[in-house]
């Protein structure tokens, strides 16, 4: 059976340009984890349902499991590893907004973007944003408190 054609791609991830040899079928999640060792974005369903793989593309949350790596060319990709000492991270710790921590990078990315893009979001908007992800450990009340405290600070 013929080998698929490998290609080379330059991805901007966390403000660094990375040369990557990839298959056209590779997802952004697969490349981040497999080629760049950025394992903060998690596989949970590979179907866009759970949000554990969420990263920011030009500051907007994207489920990296349903985005091809090649689609990210020319865009700025930010992963959880690219967030350093943000209010969102501190707030998630303070409010006990995670337990097993597996969905946490995804939630933090959504929340971080929300705080940047819509610092005055009301409850309905927050719900719309945060419903993209699933947390199975907490009751969401903790995450709600974390989000509220970040937005209140903005």
């Amino acid at each position: 059976m013929p080998e698929t054609n490998k290609k080379v791609l330059i991805l901007s991830v966390n403000d660094e340009d990375k040369d990557i040899v990839f298959r056209p079928a590779d997802t952004l999640l697969g490349v981040l984890r497999g080629k760049l060792g950025l394992t903060g974005a998690k596989p949970g369903c590979l179907n866009g349902d759970c949000g554990a793989c969420t990263v920011l593309v030009d500051g907007i949350p994207m489920k990296s499991c349903i985005m091809l790596a090649i689609e990210a060319e020319g865009h700025k990709v930010t992963t959880i590893e690219g967030l350093i000492n943000t209010k969102t991270q501190a707030s998630f710790i303070k409010h006990f907004a995670f337990q097993c921590g597996y969905c946490t990078p995804g939630f933090i990315m959504v929340c971080h973007s929300l705080a940047e893009k819509q610092p005055h979001a009301d409850k309905a908007v927050i719900k719309e944003w945060m419903q993209s992800n699933i947390c199975r450990c907490t009751s969401y009340q903790e995450i709600e408190e974390a989000v509220a405290s970040i937005l209140a600070e903005e």
């Binding site: 394992t39 959880i80 006990f96 995670f98 946490t104 990078p105």
Partner: peptide, 23 residues
């Protein structure tokens, strides 16, 4: 309410699970 020991790792993507080890 002591903060869990692995909390900083869990909010920075450094926490590693079975599938996260170099392969």
């Amino acid at each position: 309410s002591v903060i869990r020991k692995e909390a900083p790792d869990k909010v920075t993507g450094k926490a590693r699970y079975t599938d996260d080890f170099s392969s």
